[in-house]
Amino acid sequence: MKNYTLKVHDVKKETQDTITLCFKQPGLRKIKYQAGQYLTLSFRINGRKYTRPYSFSSAPSADAFLETTIKRVPEGVFSNYVHDSIQVGDIVEVMEPMGDFVHTNDESINEIYFWGVGSGITPLISIIKEVLISNPLVQVNLIYGNKNFESTIFLDTINQLLVQYTSRLKVWHFHTQYTHDEKHHFVKSGRINQEFILNLLKDVAIEKTAHYICGPVDLKNTIKEALAVLECPKATIFSEDFELVKDPKDFEDILTQHVNIRFQGNDTLVEVLKGKSVLESALDAGIELPYSCQTGSCNTCKGKLKEGKMRMIGLAKDRDDLEKEDYLLCCSYPLTDNVYVEIGN
């Protein structure tokens, strides 16, 4: 895993609770990335190292700087630190770009639909900009939910793209705090719903469309159910997952256990409380294990199970790149009290 240090060139205020960090590219080792991927940032806060992944809002073909957009989360240690402390000129430690929520050019696709809510727009706007520049024959559609225009991240960017790509980009806004205005006929009241989706796509050649979804689980389910009704090929539906979906039933036989973690040549016995992952417990114990997505999507926190039994819960996607003894510690829970895990070589 490559690490870089980046200098903050600018801090742009997007909305009242959202900012974009603009980083200069390194002078020698340029960072290559794909639109839709994420950058993992690390900071030491109150003596503890915190790491969080944030999607690129920039696009390789459109933007000179590397940009990540961060929404302030109530009681969120990391996001509040970034909002309150980061300034132009600061140096930030980052990991190499990761993530498979990216656009792959498919000549059979002539229309792409982007579905997002709130900060879920971040990887979508990255891909939208890239597609508009690199795929001139593809029609782009954005369906975007927010409370109102004041809370709409990248509103100015979206409006600029509408002017620049008048014939190729269409946008529908959904507002839960809806204010009727004849000038904004493209704004709809409420949330993105199945009726709207089915009506929007009823006369579309569905097999020639692709769909990118980023937002809450309810949004993903609503869109995927509607697309299933329309018999949209699953291979053209892509979603970004920023949370582990945990079923309480999966934890019924899991108890508080002790796990022996071997990292950087040292063995540490860690108490893993019921409901907490091995990664969470290790970090709480002061072991600075490598990690990034925390949703089982990457393999940064991979460890090898040497003894005992563990179970991975809430994996966002099926993984075919893990060996039998490999476990992603962000979603791993011990089943026995003799678990021994080794991280790295």
Rank of each mutant, 00 (worst) to 15 (best):
1 M>L: 11
8 V>M: 10
9 H>M: 04
13 K>E: 10
14 E>Y: 08
14 E>W: 06
15 T>K: 15
19 I>K: 02
19 I>A: 05
21 L>F: 08
24 K>P: 02
25 Q>Y: 03
26 P>I: 04
26 P>D: 14
27 G>P: 03
30 K>I: 10
34 Q>I: 03
37 Q>S: 06
38 Y>V: 10
40 T>G: 04
42 S>R: 12
45 I>K: 03
50 Y>M: 07
51 T>Y: 06
51 T>P: 00
51 T>A: 12
52 R>W: 01
53 P>E: 12
56 F>D: 01
59 A>D: 08
61 S>F: 14
63 D>E: 11
66 L>Y: 04
66 L>H: 06
70 I>W: 15
70 I>C: 10
73 V>H: 01
82 V>R: 13
85 S>G: 04
85 S>I: 11
93 E>P: 03
95 M>N: 08
97 P>A: 13
98 M>L: 02
103 H>D: 07
103 H>K: 01
111 E>L: 01
111 E>P: 00
112 I>M: 04
117 V>K: 12
117 V>Y: 12
118 G>F: 12
119 S>Y: 04
123 P>W: 01
135 N>L: 08
139 Q>E: 14
139 Q>Y: 15
144 Y>W: 13
144 Y>P: 01
146 N>A: 04
150 E>Q: 14
152 T>I: 01
161 L>V: 00
164 Q>A: 12
164 Q>K: 14
166 T>L: 14
166 T>C: 13
167 S>G: 04
168 R>L: 07
169 L>P: 01
171 V>S: 06
174 F>N: 06
175 H>C: 09
175 H>I: 03
177 Q>F: 15
179 T>W: 07
183 K>T: 08
183 K>H: 00
185 H>V: 08
185 H>P: 04
186 F>P: 00
187 V>T: 08
188 K>Q: 04
189 S>V: 11
191 R>A: 05
193 N>T: 09
199 N>K: 11
200 L>T: 05
200 L>H: 14
203 D>S: 08
204 V>P: 02
205 A>Q: 11
205 A>N: 13
206 I>D: 01
210 A>V: 05
210 A>K: 02
211 H>G: 09
216 P>L: 12
218 D>S: 07
221 N>S: 12
223 I>F: 05
223 I>Q: 02
237 I>P: 03
238 F>C: 00
238 F>N: 02
243 E>D: 13
243 E>V: 05
246 K>L: 14
248 P>R: 15
249 K>N: 12
252 E>N: 07
254 I>T: 06
261 I>S: 02
264 Q>N: 12
277 S>I: 13
278 V>D: 11
278 V>M: 10
278 V>F: 11
279 L>Y: 01
280 E>C: 05
283 L>K: 05
284 D>V: 02
285 A>P: 03
290 P>W: 14
296 G>P: 00
300 T>W: 11
302 K>M: 10
302 K>Q: 09
302 K>E: 15
308 G>V: 00
311 R>Q: 10
311 R>C: 10
311 R>D: 03
314 G>R: 11
314 G>T: 15
316 A>E: 07
317 K>W: 04
319 R>G: 08
326 D>E: 12
329 L>E: 05
331 C>Y: 07
333 Y>M: 15
341 V>E: 03
342 E>N: 09
343 I>C: 14
343 I>K: 11
345 N>A: 13
